[in-house]
Simulated scan of single mutants.
Amino acid sequence: MVSVSRSIRVDAPAEAVFDYVDEPENHVELTPSLVDVSNVEPLENGGKRLEYTYKMAGVDLTGTLETPTYEPNERIVFEMDGDLTGTLTWTFEATDGGTEVAYAAEYDLPGGVLARVAEPFAVRYNERELRTTLENLRDRLELDAGDEDGDGE
């Protein structure tokens, strides 16, 4: 099992950060190796179900994500099924006019023995992915907050 986690402070209200992360289409912009999200469907609990394509080491991995746990402005848990199985957990904690955002990924690699050989690479790869994803989130939301008229300046 691959398990990675990271957190970052974002100078934006928890509601704004949560709302941004809650839109699956935004993840393609945030996550470098996420190629596509499609067929997004709302769930009764407020969460979503969607299909994704993620590229790891040049290989397209596809599957579905579904949110069994959805706590507005606090937590979103995605269950992954498909080429990768596991969970992605986002948590949001309001702090001093900003938000502490934590992102954790825990999943199994396909392939038995090959997966065990690839696991150290996958951990390093996904640690870098999480760091970049959170930095992109911070940069995007802080840039938007500094551009109140929306003109990009």
Rank of each mutant, 00 (worst) to 15 (best):
S7D: 15
I8Y: 09
R9I: 00
R9F: 00
R9G: 01
R9S: 05
V10Y: 06
V10T: 03
V10P: 04
A12L: 05
A12G: 05
P13E: 07
P13F: 02
A14H: 06
A14P: 01
A14S: 12
E15C: 02
A16D: 08
A16L: 10
F18E: 03
F18L: 08
F18P: 09
D19Q: 11
Y20Q: 12
Y20H: 15
V21H: 13
V21C: 14
V21P: 11
V21A: 15
D22S: 14
D22F: 01
D22W: 02
E23L: 02
E23Y: 04
E23K: 14
E23T: 07
E23A: 11
P24K: 15
E25H: 04
E25F: 06
E25D: 10
E25G: 06
N26E: 12
H27P: 04
H27C: 11
V28Y: 02
E29R: 13
L30H: 10
L30C: 10
L30N: 11
T31I: 14
T31K: 14
P32G: 02
P32C: 14
S33Q: 07
L34F: 11
L34V: 08
V35K: 06
V37D: 04
V37W: 02
S38W: 08
N39K: 13
N39H: 09
V40S: 13
E41N: 10
E41H: 07
P42N: 14
P42W: 10
L43D: 10
E44W: 00
E44M: 10
N45I: 05
G47I: 12
K48M: 11
R49W: 07
R49I: 11
L50H: 13
E51K: 11
E51H: 06
E51A: 12
E51F: 07
Y52P: 02
T53F: 04
T53K: 11
T53I: 15
Y54Q: 08
Y54C: 07
Y54N: 09
K55V: 15
K55C: 13
K55M: 09
K55E: 14
M56T: 12
M56P: 00
M56C: 08
A57G: 04
A57D: 00
G58A: 11
V59H: 00
V59F: 08
D60H: 08
D60Q: 08
L61C: 05
L61G: 00
L61A: 07
L61I: 15
T62I: 15
T62A: 06
T62V: 15
T62S: 05
G63N: 01
G63H: 01
G63E: 06
T64G: 10
T64M: 05
T64P: 01
L65K: 10
L65Y: 03
L65F: 04
L65V: 08
E66H: 01
T67K: 07
P68Y: 05
P68G: 03
P68K: 13
P68L: 07
P68M: 07
T69S: 04
Y70M: 13
Y70Q: 05
Y70H: 13
Y70D: 04
P72H: 09
N73W: 05
E74Y: 03
E74F: 02
R75L: 06
I76G: 09
I76N: 15
I76K: 15
V77T: 13
V77N: 05
V77L: 09
F78W: 14
F78G: 09
F78L: 14
E79N: 05
E79A: 12
E79T: 03
M80S: 04
G82C: 05
G82W: 00
